[in-house]
Design a protein around this nucleic acid. Structure first.
Length: 644
RNA sequence: GCCGGAAUAGCUCAGCUCGGUAGAGCAGCGCAUUCGUAAUGCGUUGGUCGGAGGUUCGAAUCCUCUUUCCGGCACCA
């Protein structure tokens, strides 16, 4: 006698057990058609799920995010079914839902071609059209292992064999296709309305590089054609923001074959870079850091003592000169300890904050290089705080405040916090790790921040907090970090004299706000789509004359603004004003100052923003104020000077 | 590093399937035009087709190796 309560608070009584689909039909024909799954007492189930007793029920449709996930998950199965029909030799493995879509990994003796992909997608459409019933059944584990082994599905059998023997396995079938799955799934293949296969790529079995390479097919699926199109449009928009493309178009930097993973900065890009560096230097000083500079090339033995050689020796650029081995520094920390070690330190010197815009090189795997985002030569806004254990929490808290201010100045306000704890390969005792992990967790809690735990993701010498932010497209980028290190100071002999005259080993906090300048600039380019706020724009304003008659006035305007410290250029070419406006708009210069006879006479400038807004004619003094304000507000500003 | 794809003028791309020593638009350069808010017109320069081998009478095109890039995977001190 199930009594079923619904989200609107109403209640329905049934004389006998009913399925989710039956309740949906009872409520209305429209809902019955839209039902993709159910949520019974909080648990997601199929629409065929029978409810025997009293329960709370929600009908899940494509309007719910879970409903969309069910569609994507079922679409992964549809993909697997199509592949098995077209390529019986392929073995199925796993097919999870991911953001905006799904993928399915197949073991196959060759790679799928783009033509295969098209054929598979066509077949999926036919199968969806056929509206095959999706059926769920359960089976004891060992029976399921035997079933899949019998079908030649070794990978699937291996997955099932890893499930505890006592658990019943749920299988889903549609047509002749059967797959192991937890579910739930849509009731029939016709409920997968809009999908597209997007790419094919290799992926390791169980995500481990020692295992076989599988063929992964990616796809996206949506409740309707319109949402699918909107998604594809978003993808195309994201592509327009690609920093590699904008980097070339805006003449910021380039990378070439002779120096893979290293950046050639052009004047405009370097202006942006040095502006950011100047800002960071200023902020750092204000937060009690002292800047230093340490060597690029250091005897290999230092890296052996620091422990880097053990774990990363193969990924360091090293060379042999005059029977001595050197390495180009991959990190700054061991060098910073050398600076710390000069002279005898007192507890009164702590905390000692040493900062360096440290140029580092790492031989990153060739396949991981990606524009400015992953390079082999980069510069960190690095610093090491030498302090006592008792000072850790306060230092971490101060750092978090510092970092929040910097991110806000760059126009980012959504920060994501993650705490990574001890990895398998590490230095230092468990007791030390306990203390370090706890100190970081407490600092986060003390600041009232919500954070996520990443077990095993810490650095080899200590746990870390990672600070990520969301850009304008909602993509998450990891930038800042603070790491507690109880090991390296000891390994490298750092000491201080405590109040009781004893010799103690300081704790070292590794920290960075932006991470690498290269990567951060890549993120900024994409976040702003190259339309940098005035304080960062390589050229803040450009003066355009209408005819040669105003050339002298245009030059004097340019000079006046340059003398006020602004980055201003002029464009005196004999071109139509519309042409010049178009060019400088495409170069995303914040302010276009147009001078014709009228402006020359009144000693003013007609201002047009890169957004196409006409600010009218202003006296030069008033424009100086306008630009000055625009620069001062940095990335916290309004629409005129930021992305959108 | 692994799987797959790509590399042709400064940029974006065509030519490659079916081998006969390269073509467009934009940019650049020259000339005319002096024109008030997103492309003025005409003319013109420019490439040993990523590199090295091979097949062939002949290779941008076919084969092998290699470098780099792109999309994933793995890695990321």
């Amino acid at each position: 006698m199930p009594s079923i309560s619904l989200p609107d608070g109403s209640r329905r009584e049934y004389p006998a057990p009913v399925t989710v689909a039956e309740v949906a039909a009872d409520i209305g024909a429209g809902l019955a058609k839209a039902a993709l799954a159910g949520r019974v007492d909080g648990r997601l189930v199929d629409t065929s799920y029978p409810i025997a007793g009293d329960a709370a029920l929600e009908i899940v449709t494509a309007r719910d995010s879970e409903g969309v996930e069910v569609i994507r998950h079922s679409c992964a199965h549809l993909l697997a079914q199509a592949v098995k029909e077209l390529f019986p030799g392929a073995q199925v493995t796993i097919g999870p839902v991911i953001e905006d879509g799904f993928y399915y990994d197949f073991a196959f003796d060759r790679a799928f071609t783009p033509e295969d992909l098209q054929a598979i997608e066509d077949r999926m459409r036919e199968l969806a059209q056929a509206d095959l019933q999706v059926q769920r059944r359960e089976m004891p584990r060992d029976e399921a292992v035997a079933l899949f082994r019998g079908m030649g599905e070794e990978y699937k059998a291996e997955i099932i064999a890893a499930i505890p023997a006592a658990e019943a396995i749920s299988l889903y079938s549609q047509g002749d296709f059967v797959d192991l799955c937890r579910g739930p799934h849509v009731p029939s293949t016709g409920k997968i309305p809009a999908f597209k296969l997007t790419k094919v790529a290799g992926a390791y079995w169980r995500g481990d590089a020692r295992n076989a390479m599988l063929q992964r097919i990616y796809g996206t699926a949506w409740p309707n054609r319109k949402e699918l199109d909107a998604y594809l449009h978003r993808q195309a928009e994201a592509e327009k923001r690609d920093h590699r493309r904008l980097g070339r178009r805006l003449d910021l930097f380039h990378i070439q074959e002779e120096a893979p993973g290293m950046v050639f900065w052009h004047p405009r890009g370097w202006m942006l870079y040095t502006e950011i560096e100047r800002y960071m230097r200023d902020r750092q000083r204000a937060h009690g850091y002292r800047e230093i500079r340490t060597p690029q090339l250091v005897d290999f033995s230092l890296w052996q003592r620091s422990g880097h050689a053990d774990k990363f020796g193969a990924d360091m650029f090293s060379l042999q000169m005059d029977e001595r081995a050197f390495a180009i520094k991959p990190m700054n920390c061991p060098c910073h300890v050398q600076v710390y070690n000069q002279g005898l330190r007192s507890y009164r010197d702590l905390p000692l904050r040493l900062a360096e815009f440290g140029s580092c090189h790492r031989n990153e795997p060739s396949g991981s290089l990606h524009g400015l985002m992953r390079v082999r030569g980069f510069t960190q806004d690095d610093a090491h705080i030498f302090c006592t254990e008792a000072q850790i929490q306060e230092e971490v808290a101060r750092f978090i405040d510092f970092l929040h201010g910097v991110y806000a100045d760059f126009g980012f306000d959504e920060v994501i916090y993650r705490l990574s704890t001890r990895p398998e390969q590490r230095v230092g005792s468990d007791e030390i790790w306990d203390r370090a992990e706890q100190a970081l967790a407490e600092a986060l809690n003390h600041q009232g921040l919500e954070w996520e735990l990443l077990p095993g993701e810490g650095a080899f010498y200590g746990p870390k907090i990672e600070f990520s932010l969301k850009d304008v497209l909602g993509r998450v980028w990891q930038l800042g970090t603070i790491q507690v290190d109880f090991s390296m100071p000891e390994r490298l002999g750092a000491q201080y004299v405590a109040a009781d005259d004893s010799r103690q080993v300081p704790v070292m906090l590794h920290r960075a706000v932006l991470g690498s300048f290269e990567r951060f600039i890549g993120i900024l380019i994409e976040h702003y789509e190259g339309a940098f706020p005035a304080w960062l724009a390589p050229v803040q304003a450009v003066v355009l004359n209408i005819t040669d008659r105003q050339a002298d006035y245009a030059k004097s305007v340019t000079e006046t603004l340059q003398n006020k410290g602004f980055r201003v250029e002029n464009d005196l070419r004999n071109e139509k004003i519309g042409f010049k406006i178009r060019e400088h708009t495409l170069l995303k210069t914040p302010y276009l100052l147009i001078v014709g006879d009228r402006e020359t006479e009144t000693q003013s400038v007609a201002i047009r923003t890169r957004e196409g807004e006409d600010l009218g004619s202003l006296s030069l003094d008033r424009f100086v104020d306008l630009l000055g304000d625009s620069v001062r507000e940095r990335g916290r500003g309004t629409k005129t000077t930021s992305a959108e």
